[in-house]
Computed example of a mutant assay.
Amino acid sequence: MPFITTKDKTEIFYKDWGNLAGKPVVFSHGWPLNSDNWENQMFFLASKGYRCIAHDRRGHGQYLDLKDVMMVGHSTGGGEVIRFLGRHGTSRVSRAVIVGAIPPVMVLKESNPKGLPIEVFDGFRTAMVKDRAQFFLDVPIGPFFGFNRPGAKISQGLIQSWWQQGMMCGFKGAYDCIKVFSETDMTEDLKKIDIPVLILHGTDDQIVPIDASAREGIRLLQKGTLKEYPDGPHALPNICIEEVNQDLLTFLES
């Protein structure tokens, strides 16, 4: 299996699917999951001739020498994409897509009146310490996939997959990441990005509410496009597979 070794000797696992000579698409997963959560999109785009690469974030499970990349991030992974571009620029990246993503910032504060109270994230931490295994069932059974909504078509397979991926994440990494994804402010990062950025977000996202994220972030991007999925949940790549796949392909080919 392929790994990249970082400067501090950490080994980062990654998947590399599709045409090695094709245009690269780099995927960044959400919390507390891993690269497996992108398998539907990677399989689809690889079948279209693209090179699809997804890594397991440090603690969850450097990119290769790539150029003309399209970066794709979901949830916390969307924040990872935005922070990367804000820090390192866009010389190697041609476009980016963030899906149900956390930027600009999630937590409620004076400069972010639409954010979620810190007590929400304190509740995550308390639930993890009390019984992580049960908490990691409660999240996918309920708000992550929107399975708590009336009439939702519940998939036990998705619930079990989320739980399995989450339990593979190191406890400390998962716990510490709650502070990172809730409190990191990427306002200035968004302003710096000078490439086209597509934002996909569900209007019924119960994890990252759209008003404080996508609808704020689009105002900060130089070349941003926002597509809202009516009544869409947080887990768009898992629930709205065909539509997300087509949106990614159309953006790649535009």
Rank of each mutant, 00 (worst) to 15 (best):
G166Q: 06
M167W: 02
M167E: 04
M167F: 05
M167I: 07
M167H: 05
M168Q: 15
M168I: 04
M168Y: 00
C169R: 13
C169W: 10
C169H: 08
C169V: 14
G170Y: 02
G170H: 14
F171M: 08
F171P: 03
F171Q: 08
F171D: 06
K172E: 04
K172Y: 11
K172T: 07
K172D: 05
G173M: 08
A174P: 05
A174G: 13
D176E: 14
D176S: 12
C177I: 08
C177M: 13
I178A: 00
I178N: 04
I178T: 01
I178M: 12
I178E: 03
K179R: 08
K179D: 15
V180R: 12
V180L: 14
V180P: 10
V180I: 14
F181S: 09
F181M: 09
F181H: 01
S182R: 00
S182V: 10
S182D: 12
E183T: 01
E183I: 07
T184V: 15
T184Y: 00
T184Q: 13
T187V: 10
T187C: 09
E188I: 11
E188M: 09
E188G: 06
E188F: 04
E188C: 01
D189V: 01
L190D: 01
L190E: 11
L190A: 05
K191Q: 15
K192N: 02
K192R: 15
K192L: 13
I193C: 04
I193P: 03
D194E: 11
D194L: 12
P196M: 05
P196Y: 04
P196T: 07
V197P: 04
V197G: 11
V197S: 01
L198C: 04
L198P: 01
L198N: 00
L198G: 09
L198K: 02
L198V: 03
L198M: 11
L198F: 12
I199N: 10
I199P: 11
L200G: 07
L200Y: 05
H201W: 11
H201C: 03
G202V: 15
G202L: 14
G202P: 06
T203N: 01
T203G: 03
T203C: 08
D204L: 14
D205I: 02
I207M: 15
I207R: 09
V208K: 02
V208N: 02
V208P: 06
P209V: 12
P209M: 13
P209H: 10
P209T: 10
P209F: 05
P209S: 03
I210N: 01
I210D: 04
D211T: 09
D211V: 12
A212L: 13
A212W: 00
S213Q: 14
S213G: 03
S213V: 15
S213K: 11
A214W: 00
A214R: 14
A214Y: 07
A214L: 13
A214N: 08
A214M: 11
R215N: 01
E216Q: 12
E216D: 10
E216T: 06
I218A: 11
I218G: 02
R219F: 06
R219T: 13
R219P: 05
L220A: 05
L221M: 08
L221K: 15
L221E: 02
L221W: 01
Q222E: 13
Q222M: 14
K223C: 03
K223F: 06
K223D: 08
